[in-house]
Computed example of a mutant assay.
Amino acid sequence: MTPNKEDYLKCIYEISTRTPKITNKEIAEKMQVSPPAVTEMAKRMIDEKLIQKDKQAGYLLTPLGHQTIARLYRKHRLIEVFLLEHLGYTTNQLHEEAEVLEHTVSDYFIEQLDTFLGYPQTCPHGGTIPQKDQLLTEQYQQTLEEVTQSGKYQLMRIHDSFPLLQYLEQVDLAINDTFTVQQIDTFTQSILIECKNQKIAIPFAIAKELYIEAQ
């Protein structure tokens, strides 16, 4: 499978975790390509039984698609752990490097890497690392956006994107930090939290990228 096709498949998976319907427009915006390009690639992926077209949901991953996604995320996240723990990368540097390497290393390399690392369960951004031949099931699925009342929470996982990592660094919020939700403001579309003795107004658009656990 080509790196481009793998990126399309990951894009479809990521959109599916946030919205009930996946359209050509959404894929085109995320992949930064034209809608006709998406249509052409979707046809190929349907022919290869990686996805299927559904009237209600748009595009759906097939069982083969889910298996492929798990393999890709396993590679990506194990590589991130290695880069962070053994090569001195920062969390902000991990994603882009892993994006390149995941398309080039072999399955054998990944199995050896898993053994070398001691079979880690999660990546540096809190995402679950699927075991060999197992499907991807994220351990933490509740987002900060879904919180409906004040209380104490812990940041367990974040969506793996460079702009988000930059934002979190700016506001000094990191994986495993505990914080208190003080106010949910629908008018300003933000959630006011207190963490490390500072107040942070987190926009809903970012809150949906942060996965939390009640404390």
Rank of each mutant, 00 (worst) to 15 (best):
L136P: 03
T180N: 10
S34C: 05
N176Q: 14
E146C: 00
F109Y: 15
E85K: 14
E169N: 13
D185M: 06
H103C: 07
L61S: 07
L144N: 01
D160Y: 06
H95N: 14
I12W: 01
T188M: 11
K199A: 14
G151W: 08
D172P: 00
T137W: 05
E97A: 14
P124L: 03
Q141C: 06
S161K: 09
F109N: 04
L135Y: 13
V171H: 05
I193D: 00
I12L: 12
S16Y: 07
I27D: 02
Y8R: 03
K152W: 03
A214I: 10
A42K: 00
E146M: 04
L136S: 05
Q154M: 10
I129C: 01
I193M: 02
E40P: 01
L173I: 14
L136Q: 08
C123M: 04
T148S: 10
K25L: 13
I158E: 01
M1S: 14
L72Y: 06
V181M: 03
I193C: 02
A207C: 13
P35M: 04
K55W: 07
F162Q: 14
V147W: 01
L136M: 07
T115K: 15
P63H: 09
Q149F: 07
E80H: 03
Q166W: 02
Q112F: 11
H86S: 13
S161M: 06
K49Y: 11
L144F: 04
V81T: 02
E6I: 09
I212S: 01
E169Q: 14
Q198T: 15
T19W: 05
L78D: 02
